[in-house]
Design a protein around this nucleic acid. Structure first.
Lengths: 136, 136
DNA sequence: GCGGGGTTTCGACGTTCATCGAAGCATAAC
DNA sequence: GTTATGCTTCGATGAACGTCGAAACCCCGC
């Protein structure tokens, strides 16, 4: 169930894909911008090979110990912790501390949310370009 | 020509989601890393609100004039061109010059490729963590 | 040819990012 | 309490990024 897609038909950043370039009820309220920023933040969280590798590990295995992640990406423990914090802050992974070890798990709903935002072009009739506007 | 995705059923970076943490036939050849880098590069191309907005415009309308994109993201023409170049280099958009104007179009296959990479967890039995290895 | 407008490239600036070593925290075993 | 181990935070450094103005490029109409 992909988070989303339940109360609101497509209630997440996806809206940016259709809410762009609209009347904008409130004059100075950048609404679509907000969604774009939210979505861009999610992409930024994945915009590093180390973090992609981490997500791959977490999506393949149900749970991964932090110690394995460090050697899985071939970087120092400090760097691994840094990347994990970024993924955690973006909600893409969750962590649980059991004794000395910390286990990380992917949050599939969040991952699916990104995939959903990328799907379904849903073309609109056609905005009419500036060129056309100036030609008429 | 979209480069990619056509002959192979899922012939793209998705492999990173299953190719990670494997025997690695060649000792010092980071193979999964390559896929991770490819995928991360795609995410990085989308890791900016301006570029997300551009993709939204291009996915909604079939074709958008460059001049509209500049004002669509509220940045200078130079900045818009910079972002468009990044998207073009990553294969997410294509451009066509007709007379004085340049029209940009999204490359749906490439966008879908990212969505595909995010889908299908395909769990493997379980890698066995370092903790377990050290405990046995 | 010349002038003008759309687009891209160049150069520069300030900001953000990835990375590591070292130090700090927390938990478990003794 | 002390020691050892796993993880995170801190501080610093070099690289990459986003942004813009100015210059260059390209195509059209005259």
């Amino acid at each position: 169930m992909t988070t989303t897609t339940m109360a609101a038909p497509k209630g997440l950043p996806l809206t940016v894909l259709s809410a762009c370039c609209q009347p904008a009820s409130a004059p100075s309220a950048p609404r679509a911008d907000e969604s774009a920023q939210t979505l861009a933040a999610l992409f930024k969280a994945l915009a590093d090979p180390a973090r992609v590798t981490i997500m791959a590990m977490l999506l393949n295995a149900e749970e991964v110990c932090a110690c394995d992640i460090s050697e899985g990406i071939g970087k120092s423990a400090a760097t691994a912790s840094h990347h994990l914090k970024i993924l955690k802050d973006s909600g893409l992974v969750a962590s649980e501390k059991r004794g000395t070890w910390v286990y990380y798990r992917a949050v599939p709903e969040r991952v699916a949310a990104i995939a959903d935002a990328l799907a379904s072009p849903q073309r609109t009739p056609r905005p009419k370009s500036r060129k056309e506007r100036s030609e008429s």
